[in-house]
């Protein structure tokens, strides 16, 4: 038997906790939410100040309190027959369908393109054509083809997002260190096993990068599509309010769009942390 004093195992010594020094107040301020909160409060105060000076008519720049009141009304009674919650729900459902569709089609397609030169040659030109066209340019076509119902929105999201998803999946596979594959081959892995146990997990971090970028683009596409042609959703709300010169409602709509977009990215990040905790290694 091999002597146990063979290799001297180097245990991972947990670093001794650094003694708690009285934290400097500067580091406390930098660590906490103090700075962003302060900036937010100052901005709102400035807004209130400008509107109470009546530099602009309230129709153009309503006071923060007015906007808050309108937000409350929007939540309870709604605008144009729908509450804010309903608009949020409709927009979120469209995103979910278009984006999940793009992932379900784009990821397998990207993996296929990366593993087969023939498939790559067949699809890449189409992709290179779609990619530089701003997704907003598809909206009129989608509306003509699919009407102003749900299908046209989902299609715009799909077209706008899928190139990003595919490209990241392809590069995820292409960038796999060659040795990872060679190790598996030497251990007698079948091509399927190499794909399932090495290629797929190796490509996953880049696939998630594509999804994080993609969700932002999907949201932009959707809001634009709703502004141009829709009868519900946050983009529609903003557009409707604009036509009626309801600046307060526009403000509420924009803030809701921002918050929702941010939330979606947070959700993807959370899934990413669960699915690829080894990212970056």
């Amino acid at each position: 038997m091999i002597q146990s004093d063979g290799p001297s195992a180097q245990p991972l010594v947990a670093p001794a906790p650094t003694p708690a020094r009285p934290a400097k107040w500067t580091s406390w301020i930098l660590a906490g939410p103090a700075i962003p909160v302060l900036v937010l409060v100052m901005l709102v105060a400035l807004w209130q100040l400008i509107s109470s000076l009546h530099l602009f008519p309230p129709l153009i720049l309503p006071a923060p309190l007015t906007v808050l009141r309108e937000a409350g009304a929007l939540l309870q009674t709604g605008y144009g027959g729908k509450t804010l919650f309903q608009d949020v729900w409709i927009s979120a459902a469209r995103i979910a369908m278009g984006f999940v569709g793009a992932v379900l089609i784009g990821v397998p397609l990207g993996l296929l393109m990366a593993s087969s030169q023939a498939v790559f040659k067949a699809i890449d030109p189409i992709l290179q054509f779609i990619r530089p066209v701003p997704p907003l340019a598809y909206i009129p076509l989608m509306v003509v083809w699919f009407g102003i119902g749900e299908v046209s929105k989902v299609m715009v999201i799909l077209l706008g997002t899928i190139p990003i998803i595919i490209i990241n999946a392809v590069s995820g596979v292409r960038n796999i260190p060659r040795q990872r594959l060679q190790v598996a081959q030497c251990l007698g892995a079948t091509p399927y096993q190499v794909f399932r146990y090495v290629i797929l997990p190796s490509a996953l971090p880049e696939i998630f990068t594509g999804m994080r970028v993609g969700i932002g683009v999907a949201w932009t596409c959707l809001v634009a599509a709703e502004i141009i042609a829709a009868t519900a959703g946050l983009g529609w709300l903003v557009q409707e309010a604009g036509q009626a010169l309801q600046v307060g409602i526009i403000f509420v709509g924009i803030v809701a769009i921002g918050i929702l977009g941010y939330l979606m990215e947070l959700i993807i990040r959370a899934i990413e942390r669960l699915a690829v905790p080894w990212k970056g290694h």
Partner: peptide, 28 residues
């Protein structure tokens, strides 16, 4: 071609980061 009768060790360990040490060793 490559086969299970020949194992390779590279300069970089090339362990699979998504597997634990146990599962890396048990991979083959």
């Amino acid at each position: 071609g490559p086969g299970a009768d020949r194992a390779v060790v590279f300069q970089q360990a090339a362990l699979y980061p998504w597997l634990s040490v146990y599962d890396n060793i048990a991979f083959g």
